[in-house]
Design a binder for these strands. Structure first.
Length: 247
DNA sequence: CGAGGGACCGGTTTTGGACC
DNA sequence: GGTCCAAAACCGGTCCCTCG
């Protein structure tokens, strides 16, 4: 709430660097951790600012974790069993669609390919926290303790895409804006484009694909009042380098 | 101005390898 | 032998650009 990031504005680029640095320097006992991370973040951020930014992020997650901020409950009709049938269950390698002998497609009536529920900001944020805490690879722990609404497989899949995107960003190879551009957990630059209200007439209906306009059923993007969970990434809806779009 | 096509993004599923 | 993680493939949806 109050922490309106008046301290400094975090750009998407900085958030990305910040997240990467956190993963790079997971050692919480390292006194120089913040300085190291600060060194990785462009824009002359001080170690204190980095630390502050991080704490906000943790605080954010804790609220969600403590229930203060309800985590959205997604009504996933197909996603049977609340989350992965227990935890240990995991069910190993999916064997649900036993058919599939020939590249799916065959029996589309059966269940088609799962639609896939987009990740919400909260989930993504929790994912980042879990990533920072358990590190890359321990998707099971992240799934159990952080992103409880997702199975380890989903977390791993999300991570896969996330890192790929991250890499693209580093290479400035990015093209369209995506959920993965949202790397800041706390906020700072919530660029979550508020509903199109009076935006541009033409395609306003679709507007930013960024989370916030999620098709997810009842995805409370806005958690608690005064809780600007927005997600930062000040990505002006147009990080979308229309101009750089080479095609 | 509207429609169509191509490209990109996000998510799921499958396969392979490594570890306990 | 069973479980988990990583990487790749596949698919559907959405967005943006170009053409009529």
């Amino acid at each position: 709430m109050v922490e309106e990031t008046k301290e400094s504005v975090w750009t998407r680029e900085q958030d990305v660097a910040f997240e990467e640095a956190i993963v790079t320097y997971p050692d919480e006992d390292d006194e120089e951790r913040w300085e190291k991370i600060a060194a990785e973040v462009p824009g002359d951020k001080s170690a204190e600012e980095i630390k502050n930014h991080y704490e906000l992020l943790v605080e954010d997650v804790e609220r969600i974790d403590s229930g203060v901020v309800p985590l959205p409950v997604y009504s996933s009709p197909m996603d049977d069993s609340e989350s992965q049938a227990g935890e240990g269950g995991t069910g190993k390698k999916r064997g649900q669609n036993g058919s599939e002998s020939n590249h799916g497609k065959a029996s589309k009536s059966e269940q088609e390919r799962r639609k896939g529920i987009a990740w919400t900001e909260e989930e993504h944020r929790l994912f980042l926290l879990g990533l920072e805490k358990y590190g890359k690879g321990d998707w099971r722990s992240i799934s159990r303790n952080y992103v409880v609404t997702r199975t380890p497989t989903q977390v791993a899949s999300h991570a896969q895409k996330y890192f790929i995107r991250l890499n693209s960003i580093n290479n400035k190879d990015r093209r369209r804006s995506s959920i993965h551009d949202i790397t800041s957990v706390n906020n700072g630059d919530v660029s979550v484009p508020q509903p199109p209200t009076n935006d541009s007439p033409g395609k306003s209906t679709k507007q930013q694909p960024i989370y916030g306009s999620q098709p997810v059923v009842g995805t409370p993007v806005n958690l608690a009042p005064g809780f600007s969970v927005g997600t930062p990434v000040g990505v002006p809806p147009n990080i979308d380098p229309r101009g750089s779009r080479h095609r």
